[in-house]
Design a protein around this nucleic acid. Structure first.
Length: 260
DNA sequence: CTGGGGAGGGGGCCC
DNA sequence: TGGGCCCCCTCCCCA
């Protein structure tokens, strides 16, 4: 599906969204401000955290994303610590998230390596999350809304149990973050921030190896893989490594790993 | 066909 | 508890 289908063009600028709800201290996000304040306003030459250059871990489709990280390896570029830390404050010990009205389930799952991890499972749809807060967000946006509706979306039929959840949902309709240059609209300010860089040409994230620059930090991380002899994603059959999960999947689907 | 860049979305963490 | 930020993932497109 073309990306353009995911965004809405605001051609009627007489009906401006309420940007006061969106603007953070980093005012460059607002499309109505960067005319008055010359670019670049986004911090220059952002330096990646040291973790971005740490020795990589080779992932295969077996160990990828469910296994906890080895304890002697620091998380790669902020790899969600919750995957390896199930004793976080979100669900520690006696502070069980369960209550008489809470149909969520704290389950212990065992991965293919026998490592036991705790997961918070939605009692309505069985979807599991590594943290209780993640489960809460899910329930607010989806399952609880189906069972205990109170706040209705005026743009569609969805209903939510909290005003906050509804406001978050409405953003997907109103797309309040509008690019002043091309009219594309986004639901989140940081999406607009990244989009604006496509117009300004600003690329604050530079590769230390080839000096190539990128507008998006994630894309720089993907690019860094291309400089590595041993890449992050490994075929479990032929041991060939790939810089991206999608390339590994393509490789496996192309027939290398027919003998599973 | 493969590899890589551009772009956008979802989930988790933190304040 | 809500919102912002960050990271990872995915899709699309192109060389």
């Amino acid at each position: 599906m073309p990306r353009s289908f995911l965004v809405k063009k605001h051609t009627n600028f007489a009906k401006k969204p309420n940007y006061s709800e969106l603007e953070s201290p980093t005012v460059f996000i607002s499309p109505y401000i960067y005319r008055a304040i010359p670019l670049p306003l986004i911090p220059q030459a952002e330096i990646l955290s040291p973790g971005a250059y740490s020795p990589i871990t080779v992932w295969t489709t077996n160990n990828l994303p469910l296994s906890p990280l080895p304890s002697d390896l620091s998380p790669i570029s902020g790899y969600p610590s919750s995957l390896s830390d199930t004793s976080s404050k979100d669900h520690s010990g006696s502070e069980s998230p369960r209550s008489d009205e809470d149909d969520s389930i704290l389950t212990k799952l065992t991965d293919p390596h026998g490592v036991e991890t705790e997961k918070f499972q939605c009692g309505l749809c069985s979807k599991s999350y590594s943290t209780y807060s993640g489960l809460l967000k899910h329930k607010q946006l989806h399952c609880d809304a189906q069972s205990r509706k109170s706040f209705s979306c005026k743009y569609c039929e969805k209903e939510y149990v909290s005003l906050g959840a509804l406001k978050m949902h409405i953003r997907t309709h109103t797309l309040p973050c509008v690019c002043k240059i091309c009219g594309k609209a986004f639901s989140r300010p940081w999406l607009l921030q990244g989009h604006i860089r496509t117009h300004t040409g600003e690329k604050p994230f530079s590769c230390p190896h080839c000096n190539r620059a990128f507008a998006d930090r994630s894309n720089l991380r993907a690019h860094l893989q291309t400089h590595s002899d041993v890449k992050k994603y490994q075929c479990k059959n032929c041991s060939k490594t790939f810089s991206r999960m999608s390339l590994l999947h393509k490789h496996e689907e192309s027939g290398c790993c027919v003998a599973h």
